[in-house]
Design a protein around this nucleic acid. Sequence first.
RNA 1: GGCCUGAUGGUGGAAUUGGUAGACACGAGGGACUUAAAAUCCCUUGGCCAUAACGGCUGUGCGGGUUCGAGUCCCGCUCGGGCUACCA
Length: 953
Amino acid sequence: MDYNFREIEKKWQQQWVAGKTYEVKEDPSKPKFYVLNMFPYPSGAGLHVGHPLGYIASDIYARYKRQKGFNVLNPMGYDAYGLPAEQYAIQTGQHPEITTFENISRYREQLDKIGFSFDWSREVRTCSPDYYHWTQWAFQLMFDSYYDTIKQQAQPISLLIDHLKASGTDGLNAWGSEELSFTAAEWNAMDVKQQSDKLMNWRIAFLSDMMVNWCLELGTVLANDEVVEGVSVRGGYPVVQKRMRQWCLRVSAYSQRLLDGLDTIDWTDSLKETQRNWIGRSEGAEVVFKVADSDKEFTIFTTRADTMFGVTFMVLAPESELVGELTTDVRKAEVDAYLEQVKKRTERERMIDKKVTGVFTGSYAINPFTGEKNPIWVSDYVLAGYGTGAIMAVPAHDSRDYTFARHFGLPIIPLVEGADISEESYDAKEGIVMNSPRPGVTPYIDFSLNGLSVKEAIAATKNYVESHGIGRVKVNYRLRDAIFSRQRYWGEPFPVYYKHGIPTMIPSDCLPLELPEVDKFLPTATGEPPLGNATAWAWDEVNRRVVDNTLIDDKTVFPIELNTMPGFAGSSAYYLRYMDPHNDKALVSKEADNYWRNVDLYVGGTEHATGHLIYSRFWNKFLFDYGYSVSEEPFQKLVNQGMIQGRSNFVYRDNEASKTAGHPVFVSFGLRKNYKDVTPIHVDVNIVKNDELDLEAFTAWRPEYADAEFVLENGKYICGWAIEKMSKSMFNVVNPDMIVERFGADTLRMYEMFLGPVEQSKPWDTNGIDGCHRFLRKLWVFIFDKEGNIRLTDDEPSKEELKSLHKLIKKVSGDIETFSYNTSISAFMICLNELSQLKSGNKQVMEAFVTLLAPFCPHICEELWHAFGHTTTVVDAPWPEWNEDYLKEDSVSLTVSFNGKARFQMEFPADADNTTIEKAVLENPQSAKYMDGKQHIKTIVVPKKIVNIVLKG
RNA sequence: GGCCUGAUGGUGGAAUUGGUAGACACGAGGGACUUAAAAUCCCUUGGCCAUAACGGCUGUGCGGGUUCGAGUCCCGCUCGGGCUACCA
């Protein structure tokens, strides 16, 4: 009886569904373990062989944990909102929901064939109203919250309102967009609209006019992580800065907690480092500069407070409001022209040609340390969004200031002894400070930094600034608030309507607010987002429901928000929803949340480092502040699976010969150097085996190759190859369905893991898969004879068998914990070989073997497990423990050294003590060669196979 | 420019964390079985030299160093991959 994987896999997949094998419930009698994969966006292309890599790795871990006695939650779902479906809808008029659902069923079909232990009863889809109900709910909660900077947590906005009523902004501890100052009386005198506008300064979900990344081609704004190098991540279209009124989330308020939390979680250092850089904490000082001949003043932020004496000019960001205030009438025309010019340049253009530009405002700022008047310039190298949008320029010690100063001929004052600034600035925070103040200059203030180290000078200056009321110590974060509006159709609608221009929340008991139908998915003629095309998109306050737009009367019926939420909205709390996916009263019940707590193992790509993985942590911390999530960090351990690259094959067309012959002529890889005009052409990897081209399949592949001619080497056409991204255009896409069909899911699972470490990127090469498939066939014939009877004995296992088995248990148990699945699989192969050498198959040993293999190859193991007479599923077979007694080595190998030089090796029984070893070494004939009678032996026993014996004179 | 990674046979990758480098698998070559193919099994397989036979030299991107001993640790480079970028 052969190993019929098709039949076996189909049978058990059906049985697992019928027996609800993978459905889990909260069970307080068992420890929980929550395994999660980053849920996929179901794209139209379906899965290629690289996609399931992470799912297989986590599935193995989930199954292993289950066999170890844990109650394992291993859910799967879909991140269903996204641009491709919408773009497709724009082109074809096909509703994105239809495309999305089609893609989902295709994904599901492909996933099902691989034999995952997902609990599909918990599936979530971000585009389903039952699901986005809770996305909208969280948004409303954020709208009704502010961040208390003393308590370091979110609080109900009502507390803040009470404070404003009683004492205005005095003593207010709230993280705001800007520092506002008004009295209780002023607050109480404001009308509802004014109060609403003011509150936006503190709400965690807030409306703000801000500079946003606007992408014209996509017709929407984008978050910072969706823009790389000035172009959109999706599509690569140019992005420009534009001021727009947008919903935002006050992620910045959580900067410090997001930073601190990294120390409590088990992620790779590189990923933590990426997040730390993204959050970008920098400690510095804010210093107030007075404007000369004016009562105006402004604040700058610097991390180099020690360089106060080297300031020679000031620079404002073009977008800064200060520009208007500080520009003198004489300079106005020139400044305006400059601002106009800056506006025209896209972010991308600014990056490509880094030409130095700027303009003088006509005003001067008084340096509070030197009393000198420094000209105030405007330049686009200063960013409006960071710090205060204004800087003090110290050209000697900042490379950007240096370039600017050189370009405009501004003075440069060196402040560090021995620093050479003739060619470039000296940016290092090292050295001894000088010129602070400069010798011979009448002191403006009684303060000197000369002779201090730069680090001491920074501290001393901060101290001075704070104690003299010139400024204050300040921590700045690079992390910015997330722009939460998208001018798209296919996303969660905001549960907000506008009552006389005041954003008002739709009552929470009326949620979810469902996405309306539209006849066109493009922006409206007036440039409104696609939801502007909806005919029924107004809120009736009295009847508490969505009604037709024509009924808008601004008395009881009002327009609803036209933007939708971005992709990260739905993916930010989905791990909580999996805990209790069908709950229509809450995002997650207290019971479920308390049991499952957070994700123990999260598997996904590093590309989400500064997007999803920041937003989720923020979202979870926010919910944690209200007790809706019981863990401050959502993902305890994170494993980043590497990409699977494609291995492309090439044929080489001899252009000259092709021209002469009138049909294509291809030369084999090894001969291509002999021809001068040869073009490599991608060829479908599925018609190439071990780099040898299947000529028949090739001529049938493309009509233009039907009459192709080949120049062969050794009777074969050999293809060249290269490692590239797996993509259709390179003809190197390998479909998992095809692999499952030819080799079975167990072989696919095994081979994907055998390719190399999970975290590492590696190329896919279908040719190597035979080794894994052979292993499973060998296992099969080791257990069954030709008639299909088990040919194992029931005897007590031999010492050798036990040693082999326990070596395997130890190796696999350790490897799974560290995700070293590739070496585990080698260990299985070695063990099976050893057992085959021993001839007699032993049932007891093979049962344990199958138990260990089950997480990797569940189908064949389930079949074997039942063949051994078990009636329960192998999924619950207890994980075996190893016994060190079986593993003891008989002998140890020692390297013997005389006078510090290694001389020879000796074998000893494993339990030999030092005395025995010394004696044996002395008596060894080889030792005599190195001894002159005066020397003695010192033994150093190390807990290794190899022991040093050093002989000293 | 900054941060993070990595570099080991023809290929994917091992190496108990300082202890016999190249496990395991693919590919390749040779052989057995077979009418033939497939499948299966056996041998060889880093390089160079040697061979009837034992064996020898060399070798983990490059150059130094520490050590009885370095793929592994330290210093200095070269090249590749990823992320990020006027963040004051």
